[in-house]
Design a protein around this nucleic acid. Structure first.
Lengths: 240, 240
DNA sequence: GAAATAGTGTCTTTGAGACAATATCCT
DNA sequence: AGGATATTGTCTCAAAGACACTATTTC
């Protein structure tokens, strides 16, 4: 597979077909901006925002992002940004799209590789103790972000919805023993519209693993408990 | 929307939160590699390949690509690469994914923004006169490409199939007056498996515009002619 | 009339949506 | 018992698949 890669040392200045050396080309900065989505305990689809540096006006909020470092993958850069800018430990960022308008950033030529990460609520706002300059807002109230970050949020929500149409809880937002009603509430939060009790139930239940236990201590017939069939995903599925 | 963008001139060296100037960061080269897919007259799904510069061994073929130039969109760079490297006029490249393995290119740190373009056959191999070092091969025989281009072809085919599951001919591979049998053949080529005559017909016909004309001069009952409802897409839908 | 291709009638299956009835628990 | 919630029975409807039949042309 790499038979002709090993024939030259790393420092050689290769030339492309036009005869120009690789390092002669002007290169863009590559930013990684991530929409971290989660569902709050009151079933609201929320996004993680950070205050834009050096401003307190409108457009003062944006998605956590950073510039890609040498030797780093986009996914790692996304996780680093979440940790550094928001104090949040991400899970498995996936690429959404590259925003490539040459004028999209007034600091210069910056491409933005937009990402989506989905994390359980207690991981993003667990103790109610968010760092300063960090907030988690319902996506419906997140309009007016800096740069083109509104559009990134749009893409992220669309992507999340299509993922959750395919399987019950692909991103493990729920956490292991859960009832079918909790699953229904989650889907309503993600889709942004109500779901029929029985439709949702019949569609998803066959693909879930019943624990055998039931939810106790509440009024009404106790709900059966279920768990995920397959382990939730961690980082590692990026496009190398 | 951009109220606070106009407050500073373009040459100012902005600093991010860590205090580092934008131009101080090492930046990757950004390549744009495009899988151009088409369907041959004998109903084979094909991909456009170019010979890798300076080699005649295995792995000698690759997708046409180039480095992104300043002020240029990814889509424009993809079209430029098709024109310069293969002498082909592309149509509407769409992003597939960014390949970001730091070691994926032995020339250095190169990200690849993989694209898909779909063009009618006569546009890619019209006169049978392909430029030297250019070929159009069935995708099934395209294995062993340079870099990670095999995976780009895989992504492109998957994407094309999902697009063609949604509507009859979203990329205008057919060209305006066509019969339902031609449409069926096209879908079989894209999907790589046979389709029922009546299913295919009943599913797609209602969304097509009959021209009123029929195909003449062939034995059997003459087939009705159809045309596309909406104009085919050109470049312009990129993520700004 | 025979061959060849286009187009349709209809049966079956599947899956989702909707409504309502039944089951089981807590207080 | 009574309220509250979970679970299931069943009807309907729409879409797709499969098969076979009918229709219209050329030779």
């Amino acid at each position: 597979m790499c038979d002709n890669r090993c024939m030259a040392s790393r420092s050689t200045r290769y030339r492309d077909t036009s005869g120009k050396a690789l390092t002669d080309y002007p290169r863009p900065s590559v930013a990684v901006d991530t929409a971290v989505l989660s569902v709050s305990p009151d079933d609201q689809l929320c996004v993680l925002l950070v205050r834009r540096a050096g401003t307190h006006k409108r457009g003062a909020w944006q998605l956590p992002g950073t510039f890609l470092h040498p030797g780093e993958t986009l996914g790692r850069a996304a996780l680093r940004a979440l940790s550094d800018k928001a104090g949040v430990t991400g899970l498995a960022p996936v690429q959404l799209a590259v925003f490539d308008d040459p004028d999209r950033d007034d600091r210069g030529w910056v491409l933005s590789a937009a990402h989506l990460d989905v994390v359980p609520w207690d991981r993003v706002a667990g103790l109610g103790a968010l760092a300063d300059g960090v907030q988690v807002t319902p996506v419906s109230q997140s309009r007016g972000l800096a740069f083109d970050h509104d559009r990134i949020v749009d893409l992220a929500v669309i992507r999340l919805r299509t993922e959750y149409q395919q399987s019950p809880d692909p991103r493990g937002l729920l956490g292991d023993p859960f009832t079918l009603l909790q699953l229904q509430r989650l889907h309503e939060a993600v889709a942004g519209e109500p779901r029929r009790k029985d439709s949702c139930r019949r569609l998803r239940a066959p693909t879930l693993e019943p624990t055998g236990g039931v939810l106790e201590g509440v009024v009404g017939k106790p709900a059966r408990l279920f768990q995920h069939r397959e382990p939730q995903r961690q980082l590692g599925g990026g496009h190398g």
